[in-house]
């Protein structure tokens, strides 16, 4: 499996994501600086990391979504290449128009940084196939702007089409319908606020994050 991790100025989970991909899939990703105008030939997975790209200027993810490399990411996503956006990466994907909705300031206004319980709402995606449908899993969050918003019609459509992949099983940030992660209509672009790459070894307190990368390896070889 050939993968790339996009690095924006202010990304801070890019190396964690690279380690998770390398350790679980057996192949290290190419790190791609946001000013690049091409992606590695034949890339199977593009990962957008967490962090505070551009210091969250204007809106979280707004500046990064207009970075030169994002035109390539959008083109690749349209061709069906898998794209995973974690935390700030999710914010970038919504700002880039690859996923619907927006991530607003947490309802409680606090930065939330802790392990949270999630429910697997759809286990039929290439990202979630190694989880059992309806299972409760633990994945850490660390964000200030994770309050998922979309209009009622969009939320109904997402739910109706099984595009809500993960939900919070507890109160975290005020997200509409407890949405923690959504996939695009094609099923190849997932954005989620929790950080699966932070819980892949027993030494980190759990391994529930591993299965997302195992699912991607199974789907993409």
């Amino acid at each position: 499996m050939k993968s790339a991790v996009i690095v924006f100025p202010g990304s801070n989970c890019d190396r964690d994501l690279a380690v998770a991909i390398r350790d679980i899939t057996g192949t290290a990703p190419t790190m791609v600086w946001h000013r690049e105008t091409s992606l590695p030939e034949g890339v199977d997975l593009i990962a957008l990391p967490g962090g505070f790209s551009y210091g969250d200027y204007l809106r979280s993810g707004a500046m990064s979504a207009r970075s030169p490399v994002m035109a390539e990411v959008i083109a690749a996503a349209t061709r069906g290449v898998a794209v995973l956006g974690v935390c700030n990466g999710f914010q970038v994907l919504t700002e880039a128009g690859l996923l619907p909705g927006a991530l607003m300031r947490n309802a409680g206004l606090d930065f939330v940084c802790r392990d949270v319980q999630l429910t697997v709402a759809n286990s039929q995606t290439m990202f979630s196939s190694r989880y059992d449908a309806g299972a409760t899993i633990t994945i850490p969050v660390a964000h200030h702007d994770g309050n998922y918003f979309a209009d009622a019609e969009t939320l109904d459509r997402l739910e109706g089409e099984g595009r809500v992949v993960f939900r919070y099983a507890e109160q975290v940030n005020g997200s509409a319908r407890d949405i923690a992660g959504v996939v695009n209509a094609q099923g190849n672009v997932l954005g989620l606020m929790p950080h699966p790459e932070r819980l892949i070894e027993a030494e980190q307190g759990g391994t529930d994050g591993r299965r997302m990368f195992e699912a991607l390896l199974a789907a993409l070889g």
Binding site: A62, E95, A102
Partner: peptide, 9 residues
């Protein structure tokens, strides 16, 4: 439309 405002919200 392209940058200054996010017209979703």
């Amino acid at each position: 439309r392209k940058l200054l405002a996010n017209t979703v919200i």
